[in-house]
């Protein structure tokens, strides 16, 4: 089964996954019209800044067992049998924020959602784009990501690829796979800058 896999070292912090996600979870599903919708669709993937201001696409891991599901007061959080996706039923959700204290990744938000009941805030998080996938598309964040920080593939495939990359660079004596020089250069500069700022 394919799933969204995050490759943190690849994220360049462009945040393009965020509007793509919001658009995919809008009523009109087009960026231009989605921004005009009321309530406004909001992203369910959140690019946060790390210690050196590097980007990180933070999205639901669909944990098993899922702490949010265990803590949900109303049973609104459930696991989609076919895809193992942890879903929130917006009509059962009472917006109590119990899941906010359960989610170790801080990916759940509370707001009125175009796909939820009107006039009422509910808990909202990644649903693995089940609607898009059912239509034969891939999740919107993966489609938007041009650097391979988010991929949609079998977990095994991704692991094998990673193992192979490490093995190749190890056997060529290069050690851990290195970043492209421009990327490495910029990161070094930014790390140095942030460290100086704190010093």
């Amino acid at each position: 089964m394919k799933e969204v896999i995050v490759h943190p070292k690849r994220c360049v912090g462009c945040m393009q996954c965020m509007p793509a996600c919001a658009t995919a979870h809008s009523r009109t599903r087009h960026l231009v019209s989605a921004v005009l919708e009321t309530p406004q669709p909001k992203p369910r993937v959140h690019v946060g800044a790390g210690r050196f201001n590097e980007g990180f696409p933070n999205r639901c891991r669909h944990c098993d067992p899922a702490p949010c599901q265990l803590t949900c007061l109303t049973g609104a959080i459930y696991r989609h049998a076919g895809t193992q996706t942890v879903m929130i039923d917006p009509d059962r959700c009472i917006n109590c924020a119990s899941c906010a204290m359960a989610c170790p990744y801080g990916v759940i938000r509370f707001h009125e959602d175009p796909l939820g009941p009107p006039g009422r805030a509910v808990a909202v998080k990644c649903d693995n784009c089940v609607a898009r996938v059912a239509e034969g598309q891939i999740p919107a964040c993966v489609e938007a990501c041009k650097v391979g920080a988010l991929t949609y593939e079998e977990r095994d495939t991704a692991m094998k690829r990673q193992t192979l990359a490490v093995a190749r660079s190890m056997s060529s004596g290069a050690g851990e796979p290195v970043l492209p020089p421009g990327v490495g250069l910029l990161r070094t500069m930014k790390e140095s800058q942030v460290q100086l700022l704190k010093g």
Binding site: A49, Y105, G106, V107
Partner: peptide
């Protein structure tokens, strides 16, 4: 809140400054 909760449950020694933990932009990536 859940991120802080996980830090507490796992008794992770803090590497970040407390002001970072309190900042409005604190997030898992930190």
């Amino acid at each position: 809140g859940g991120v802080l909760c996980a830090l507490m449950e796992n008794r992770v020694p803090l590497r970040l400054s407390t002001s970072r933990l309190m900042a409005p932009d604190f997030n898992f990536a930190c």
